[in-house]
Every structure is written in structure tokens, then in C-alpha cells.
Nucleic acid binder design. Sequence first.
DNA 1: CCGAGATACTTAACATGTTAAGTGAATGCG
DNA 2: CGCATTCACTTAACATGTTAAGTATCTCGG
Lengths: 152, 152
Amino acid sequence: MRDFSRSLPMSLLRAREAVMRQFRPKLREHGLTEQQWRILRALAAIEAAEVTELARTAFLLGPSLSRILRDLEARNLIERRTAKSDQRRSMVSISKDGVKLMASVAPSSEAIYAEITQRFGARKLGELQEMLGELEQSLAGLGAGDEASAEE
Amino acid sequence: MRDFSRSLPMSLLRAREAVMRQFRPKLREHGLTEQQWRILRALAAIEAAEVTELARTAFLLGPSLSRILRDLEARNLIERRTAKSDQRRSMVSISKDGVKLMASVAPSSEAIYAEITQRFGARKLGELQEMLGELEQSLAGLGAGDEASAEE
DNA sequence: CCGAGATACTTAACATGTTAAGTGAATGCG
DNA sequence: CGCATTCACTTAACATGTTAAGTATCTCGG
């Protein structure tokens, strides 16, 4: 069997960890986890979003998002209100405190990203992301889903 | 600020998830998580390994590994014995049952990997892994560690 | 030989990943 | 309208990620 440490999943895992290791300490200084930071960034880019939409954007599963939103709301970093047209839906938005926190973390985050880009090379970074996107695309609609064996 | 959904961490996260989504259902049929499978595969390639060495190979943190080894041992998939020369060290090896389980899962796993390779393209896969390795290397020795600001 | 420090784990505590089940509200069909 | 179904979340339960603290053992200088 192939040496699993050279398998694609392990390559992706190690690469991502190498990248995230750069960000975590700074986020931690501000009491944020990687996931919480993703949510704040996603919310900062829009007015408000439904929970399901936010889950898709921040690439989090519903249950994780539910817990995190509960905690972020308790810390007054986000705000929620139920949609008037549909009582099931909840509109989430970033709060004033959330915006301030973002502003205090963003510069460091950008600096780290710039350092990574410089070390790896901007061109190669672009190529890498291109390939990652293609990989994702080539596997879209394969396994896992609830598709009733709809493969031709 | 850059659209975070196009950031390198998100690209890596989505790509890895797209890949792992292919494997998880089959592993689950056999009552294995992704991490447990990594450990069994790592152990199958060697006679025995110390816990620390195994953590490095399977890319798991010590505390996670401790818990998983406890569970795998309870399921009789691995065996442990303390090293004679150093009572602190524990030698871990895969058991007969572990080998049998590996044998029953490996074919499906290989088939899935082959399907991914075929969809994405063997050459591109090689290039991608090459780039991921370079990314990892270019960030080696940067942040996170306990280095006392040893930057030039 | 002995005690301070280093090592190799293990435990603890809290956050998230993952699947299944639960809850309340909206929809659609007879 | 009535009610089964679907939908948008939320809870629950268990496994892992992550950092800090704990435990037993080993090493080494004095």
C-alpha cells in the first residue's frame, strides 16, 4: 500500500496546518479561534446573512455554527434577529464590537498573509489555488451526497 | 480585505474536505474515523513505534493520539508494551485483528484513491503534491514554535 | 547518591467536527 | 381548513483539535 504520509489527504493536511500555524497565535491573542475568525470575516463582507447561508460561506457544519454563534452573541460580537417573513430563519450580522475587533486583528492577519505569499511566491500561490479549485471541481458531485446513485 | 473564501486556508480546507468526503463513508462502515485509519496505516508499515514517533507520522497531537490509542487498544486493534530500556516509552504495534481490518478496508480505499487520481489527473496530482510540499517547506521554521525570536 | 531539570506520555478543559435526533414554523395537497 | 411533509435551525452524543497541567521516569551535574 502507498506510503500514506505521501497521500493526497496527508499532503493537504500538512500544508494547511503549516499555513494555519502562522495565524493561530495572533488570533489567540484576541481570544478568537480560526472558525470564529472565519465567521466574523464572512459577516463583515455583508449586511446580514441567514445561518444556513453563513454555514456555506464559512464552510462550517450547522451544529458547529450554532454553537459558535451562541458564543459570539454572548460576547456581543454579533447580533441576531428572526426574519419577519419566516420565523424559522435567523438573520445574523456583525456588531459594533465585532467590527472593532476585526479592525484590530486585520492588520496582523494581512501581514502574515503577505509574508506567506512572499515566501512561497505570489505566482506559485496563484497556481496552487487554481489547482486546488480544480481538484475540488473534479470531485464535485461524487460520493457522500444523498444522490440515489444518479451516476450514469 | 481580501474575500476570505478565496484565501489560501479556505482553498486548502475545501480541497481537503472534497477529498476526505470520498473516504469517510467507507471508513465509517468499518467503524473507523479518519484519524484511526491513519494510525493503523502508519503502524502497518512498521514493526512497532513509540507514541511520539507515531504522533509525528500520523500527524496527530499527543493528547489526541493518547485517547485514540486507548480506544484502539480496547478494541484489540493495536497492542502496547512498555520499552524495557526506558519505562516512560511505550511501543505500539498493530494487532492481528488490526491487520485483518486493514485488509478488509484497503481495497475500497485504494479504489477511491484511484478514482480521485483518474478524475483529477495523475500528472496534475503529482504537481499539486509537489507544490503542497514546497509550501510546507517555505513555511518551515516560521511562527508558532518556541523559538526565542531567533529571526535575523 | 541525590535532587533539579528534562522527557514521554497522560489528563483535563474547552472548542470544533460529525452524525443523528429534536423543535418549531412554513408549505402544499386533498 | 387540516395535516403530513419539508425546512431552518438547535441539541445531543461522541470523537478529535488545542493548550495547559499533571505524572512517572530518566539524566546529569555536584
